[in-house]
Design a protein around this nucleic acid. Structure first.
Lengths: 137, 137
DNA sequence: TCCTACCTTGGACATTGTCTAAGTCAAGAA
DNA sequence: TTCTTGACTTAGACAATGTCCAAGGTAGGA
């Protein structure tokens, strides 16, 4: 994750304790926290960090392309630090668990020109839904 | 849409004026209103209809499979009455316009077994993102 | 060390959705 | 037709999530 901090400094980020702990919380694979969860985990390390700062920092990380915003359920958005490897999401309909998955092929290629209605289409997000092994038991 | 009302009666629905206007508002193709928009349009015909009833009715229509809930932006959910023809959505990143689209192939088939992690996968939702002709101009 | 533009904070506010208690009414029964 | 009853609707309080602002704090260059 210090790679991330280096990239951020390179982009002119002022490196504050608050931004550091938010970046640390988002370190790891298969991380899909809500803003509130990020705030709670960040507050474990830096108790006085405010909600506004967590929202600001997450928004900046998304703008910079370092983190992806995922909303699979219409509730709170989740923040996925795995932004540098294309992937889609598999969500359990019961417990809400999210897995990163890699379908074959390029979903963008499956949308024919006559189905694009003149749009400049640039991305395709796929959400697979099902029931995870724990919830099926 | 009277087809819909008939199906609902067949399922034991009590047919009230409120439910009728909500169903009427959702009549048509390429309809993707938010709950608030449905409420405003319903109130044009039945001014005293309450927000709670609109939410209740939309929730019931979703449970019955007559309407699909779409959340493309993490903001308000949208309600899509085109539930009986499989389709995906194409969203303009600038103005938020939504089009129903029909990609070729079955997106579910593109998720290999070893990428399912033991889930019983039952659906795939694809959101294509781009810029519509009006916004590109 | 100092300066200043950028950052953080607490809290008010906005949006979207849920819940409840009390009153109303659709539709079957008589 | 009228009656009855349980399902439906209502207003408004409440909850969850996110945004904004003015005031004060601080990272990092000079």
């Amino acid at each position: 994750m210090s790679d991330l901090l280096k990239r951020l400094r390179g982009r002119g980020w002022r490196l504050t304790a608050q931004r550091r702990v938010v970046a640390e919380v988002l370190d790891g694979d298969h991380v899909h926290y809500t803003a509130d969860e990020v705030h709670a985990l960040a507050a474990d390390r830096l108790p006085e960090i405010s909600r506004a700062t967590v929202y600001n920092t997450l928004g900046e990380l998304v703008s910079l392309g370092e983190v992806i915003e995922v909303s699979t359920d219409g509730r709170a958005k989740r923040y996925d630090p795995n932004a540098h490897h294309a992937h889609q999401h598999l969500v359990c309909a019961r417990c809400g668990t999210i897995r990163d998955v890699h379908p074959v092929g390029d979903p963008l290629a499956d949308l024919p020109a006559q189905e694009r209605f003149g749009f400049a289409v640039s991305a395709a997000e796929v959400t697979y839904r099902g029931v995870c092994p724990d919830c099926a038991a």
